[in-house]
Amino acid sequence: MKWIYRFLSICLALIFLVPVIWMLAVSVKVEGFKLDSVFDWFLPPYSLDSYKKVLAQTPLLTWTGNSFIVATATTALVVLLSSMAAFALSVLRFRFKRLVYMIVLAGLMVPGEATIIPLYQVVKDLHLLDSYSGLILPAIASPFAVVVLKSFYDALPGELLESAELDGAGLWTIYSRIVLPLTKPAMSSIAILTFIGSWNSFLWPYLCVSSSELFTLPIGVPTLMSGYTRDYVIPMTVNSLSSIPIILLFLIFEKQIVKGVSLTGLKG
């Protein structure tokens, strides 16, 4: 019983791994290789020619750079803006606080995809199409992040903040020296989810950007896949190259990522 279970588990893991292994294996094959049996996909001869070719002839590195710029800037701004807003909504006292919070909560009900057409028009009217700002700014106000962070700030012991206030600490000091450091895990969760979301974002960059110098990976890669007579090798090299950075990041930060996901749930 136990070893059947173990065997099944291994099989499952294999099924999950095979596409990734296949992608990597095909990417190091020689273009036009002959396929006589299933093993030919995975066995040598290997060659890195297709990597050289893709790196030399396509803007894949630029796109990787763009993806990093956009994802990093989006993440930084989301964390900053939502932590400030959450701080105000959780700690500070002001008029219409409840109303303001309700407006933020309402944002949770607005799925981005349903407003993508008017968003395009708004961004066009602001003359931000086809620019980094156009890619980044529409994603920086995340009601989800505000709500999550607020719940963490609400859970901070009130005495802590009061005593700081009594010690004469200003609000900025309370925010930056007490609240932020104490809720680091929550913020890194938000950061990780935002980063992955932005890194994988497809529809908005697809609509927003037309110059290939500004493409992010998800929208650049398909432009290399179209056209007639494509082998398997080049497409898989493109796929591998565009996945390697994120796979490495995943392997390095796996613990934090898993923690982040389980802490805040996934974002729609």
């Binding site: 400030m84 807003a85 002001f94 407003t115 008017p118 708004v122 700014l137 106000a141 009601p143 609000l171």
Partner: peptide, 29 residues
Amino acid sequence: EGMFAFLFLLPFFVAYVLFTLLPMLKGLQ
């Protein structure tokens, strides 16, 4: 404190209004 709250909420709300609420209205139009 109210002033402070306003300043802290402002950046979020500028982006929120521009890229979430405004598109809602624009879409209706």
